[in-house]
Design a protein around this nucleic acid. Sequence first.
DNA 1: CATGAGCGC
Length: 287
Amino acid sequence: MGNRREFRWGDAADEDEGIEGVLPPTQVIGPDEKGVKIIIEWRKREDGAKVKVTTTVRVKKQVKKLNPAVVRRRSLKKFGDALGQNASDNLTVVSTEEIFLERTRPAGQQGQKQEEKGAELASLGNASLIVCRTCGKKGEHWTSKCPFKELVANRGFNIGERPPGEEDLGTASVGPGKASYVPPSMRGGKQGDGESMRKGRDDNSIRVTNLSEDTREQDLQELFRPFGSISRIYVAFDRDTGLSRGFAFINFVNREDAVRAINKLDGYGYDNLILRVEWATPRTDRA
DNA sequence: CATGAGCGC
């Protein structure tokens, strides 16, 4: 393909220099009206010492008359994510806002449609198919940029690794020739070691109470998805009034994910209420 | 505060 030093996404993620290895950003001052530009950059010498390099250059005089509003904006102080960046950096930031679409059919009937979509994407040569392996969102961000990174930092596997039993339901891989269905009974990785199939058949169901009245399935999906694959979300609505009864059930594919969700989210402030998250009593265990 | 829907061949 490319001849020489070609940029690859993998390289960016692999160069794990850590916080200490990061040098202060290059700063560019000017050019002023005389065409003088000052570049202050930091470099690392062979022996590891950081050196500050200041370069003063005279650039070609500005030919084009700039919009005065633009000129004024350039002298404004930077803030937020733009701090420490300069005009040559890519200042476009991936939005972390989650937008969920209303589902028009019950969950059980989605498999078919999902497959069609997969075929569609595959026929497009899956040119821009980005799937975050932390939160599962498609086309939004790379795993390393996941807004949920912190929240999920202490899961049982490394971020970037595929969590056990991840290929369920809508998350099924759409890559060419990669689609492989794993039945629910086979999900969850390590099968026979007793850990995942202890205590009979439970569906890793957790109960969430003290929800605000307007909490809906989408809100819970957003809140719980970072911990692992969710197989079902049920929000208890009153049949007559249509209002939320203030509790819901979330089923995780993997029990360990449910454990972490309980530990992290029980007592979590949500919608000005304190959530209560605990194991649900399986329906079958009640009279 | 609170423990889910359906039961069809």
